[in-house]
C-alpha cells in the first residue's frame, strides 16, 4: 500500500520534468534529426540520405569553421579558467564576510543585463572612436585611433566576460569545501605555494574545474551574438553557419545536420575531457 503510493508520488514528482524533457528536448531533436537526413533532389522533393553530413565533410570551409569554433572555445575556456581561478580562490579562501559577498555580487552584476546589452557595452569600449582608443590616445600611447573591435581577440574578450560567472561559481563551491587546515598542513609539511596549488588545491578543485570548463565550453561553442557582433568580418563561428543555413539559405536540412554535428562534437569533447582528467560525470555534476 505505502509502496504503491510512494511510487505514485515519485511518478507525479517526476512527471513535469519528464514531460518537459520529452516535449521540448527529445521530440524536437528526433524531428530535427529526421530533417537532417532529408536530401533535396528537386523543387519540393526530398529523399532520405546522409548527403547533408557528406556535404559537411566535403566542404573544407565547414570543417575549418568547425575546427576554428572548437579551438577558440577551448582557448576561451582555458582563459576563463586562468582568470577565474585566482578570483574564485580569493573569494573562497581569502575574502571574509562583507568583502566576500560584495565580490561575489560583482561577478553576478553583469548578468543583470541581457547579453545583447553586454556585447554592445564591449563595442562601445573597443570601437575605433570608443573609450579605450580615446584613452590610449590621450595617454599618448597611440598616435591615432586604434581599432580594437572586429578581431579574434575581441571575440575572446567577449566570450571570457560572458562565461566568467559560470566558471567562478563552481570553483568557489569546491574551493570552499577545502579545509583551510589541509592547505596549512601542506605548508607545515614543507610544501611551497606552487606545489600546494599543484598537489592539493587543484586536485581538490578538479570537479569544480571540470564542471566549470564544461559549462563555459558549451556556452562558448553555442554562442552566437558575441562572435557575430565583436568578430566582424573574420568571425567564423559554427552557430553562424547554422543560422545562415536555416534562415538565409532556407536549407533546414543542412542546418539540422550542422546542429547534430555540433552536438556530437561538444559531447565528444566533454567526454574526452572527463576521461582525460579522470573525472566522472557523476562526481562533476553531483
Amino acid at each position: 500500500m505505502t509502496g504503491t503510493s510512494a511510487r505514485l508520488g515519485f511518478v507525479l514528482l517526476l512527471a513535469p520534468a519528464a514531460l518537459w524533457l520529452t516535449l521540448l528536448i527529445v521530440i524536437p531533436h528526433i524531428d530535427l534529426f529526421l530533417v537532417s537526413l532529408r536530401e533535396r533532389i528537386g523543387v519540393g522533393q526530398y529523399t532520405t540520405s546522409f548527403a547533408n553530413y557528406g556535404t559537411f565533410l566535403d566542404e573544407p570551409l565547414y570543417l575549418m569553421t568547425f575546427a576554428r569554433t572548437a579551438i577558440m572555445s577551448v582557448l576561451a575556456t582555458a582563459l576563463t579558467l586562468l582568470i577565474g581561478f585566482p578570483v574564485a580562490y580569493y573569494i573562497a579562501k581569502l575574502a571574509r564576510g562583507r568583502t566576500r559577498s560584495v565580490l561575489f555580487l560583482l561577478c553576478l552584476v553583469p548578468f543583470w543585463v541581457s547579453e545583447l546589452v553586454r556585447t554592445f557595452g564591449w563595442m562601445i569600449l573597443l570601437r575605433e572612436t570608443g573609450l579605450v582608443s580615446s584613452l590610449l590616445q590621450w595617454a599618448g600611447l597611440a598616435a591615432g585611433p586604434v581599432e580594437l573591435l572586429y578581431n579574434d581577440a575581441a571575440i575572446m574578450v567577449g566570450l571570457v566576460y560572458t562565461s566568467m560567472l559560470f566558471m567562478v561559481v563552481p570553483l568557489i563551491t569546491t574551493l570552499d569545501s577545502l579545509d583551510d587546515a589541509v592547505i596549512e598542513a601542506g605548508y607545515d609539511l614543507g610544501g611551497s605555494a606552487p606545489s600546494i596549488l599543484r598537489e592539493i588545491v587543484i586536485p581538490h578543485a578538479m570537479p569544480g574545474i571540470v564542471s566549470g570548463c564544461i559549462v563555459v565550453f558549451m556556452l562558448s561553442l553555442g554562442n552566437y551574438l558575441t562572435p557575430i557582433m565583436l568578430g566582424g568580418k573574420d568571425s567564423l563561428w559554427f552557430t553562424e553557419l547554422i543560422y545562415s543555413q536555416f534562415i538565409l539559405r532556407f536549407n533546414w536540412e543542412l542546418g539540422a545536420a550542422f546542429g547534430f554535428v555540433l552536438l556530437l562534437l561538444s559531447s565528444v569533447i566533454v567526454w574526452g575531457t572527463l576521461r582525460l582528467t579522470g573525472q566522472t560525470l557523476r562526481e562533476t555534476m553531483g
Binding site: D179, A181, V182, E184, A185, G186, D188, L189, I200, P203
Partner: peptide, 13 residues
C-alpha cells in the same frame, strides 16, 4: 610539524 585538530589528511592522495 603539526597534527591538526581534524587531522587534515590530503583527501586527494
Amino acid at each position: 610539524n603539526m597534527v591538526f585538530q581534524h587531522l587534515a589528511l590530503f583527501p586527494m592522495m
